[in-house]
Amino acid sequence: MTPAELASLHCAAFRSERSWSADEFAALLQSPYVTLTARPQGFALIRTIAGEAEILTLAVHPDHHRQGIASLLISDWMAETTAQRAFLEVAADNHAAQGLYRKHGFAQTGRRRGYYKRSDGTMVDAVLMTAALPCGQGAESPRTP
């Protein structure tokens, strides 16, 4: 997927929040520590440094929700990562995503009050989640160009 395609899908998936631009995706993809896991109609962007992975964003087009795409993205990434631990933040009102992450071994470890600002101005907490990755083999190396 190109940065423009990622931005378009991200915009569709996050209608009530500020979506990321093609330039932001392009900049992230320049990092040797950021990986993209993609399937038709969805993607996950993950940064891995020193054995820890952060799921930066996971997006599935709304027309394809509840089809298992997000779960496949996480499974694909977990099968490839060498990270030993993963973390993420998710909106407190996004119960479907929290259930998805729990299914993959994530547990709530904290909360950031009023972290997300919706397009209507309301503020929503971020739920912090962490998972141990038993298949991790140590710190992930930067990608080679």
Rank of each mutant, 00 (worst) to 15 (best):
R102C: 14
G51P: 03
Q67V: 04
D63N: 15
T109L: 09
S75K: 11
L88E: 10
F106C: 06
L56M: 15
A97H: 00
A97I: 05
D76S: 05
I69Y: 04
S75A: 14
A97Q: 04
L88G: 07
I49C: 04
R66S: 08
R112M: 05
H95F: 07
T82V: 09
Y101E: 12
R113H: 04
I69M: 05
V60I: 09
Y116M: 07
A79L: 08
T57Q: 15
P62D: 06
Q98P: 14
L100S: 00
A86Y: 02
G68Q: 15
K117V: 11
I55K: 00
R113P: 04
D76T: 02
R118S: 13
L56Y: 12
D93V: 11
H104Y: 13
T109V: 15
N94D: 03
G105C: 14
G99S: 15
R113W: 00
Q108D: 09
A59R: 13
S75L: 05
A44N: 01
L72C: 15
Q98A: 05
A97G: 03
I69E: 04
G114L: 01
A97E: 00
F106T: 05
A92I: 13
A79T: 11
I74K: 10
A79W: 07
L73Y: 11
A86K: 02
N94L: 00
L72K: 13
E54F: 03
Q67Y: 04
E52N: 10
A91E: 14
R66D: 08
A59N: 12
H104L: 13
G51F: 02
L45N: 01
G51V: 00
A97F: 01
L45C: 11
G110S: 01
K103F: 06
H65P: 12
L45Q: 01
A83E: 08
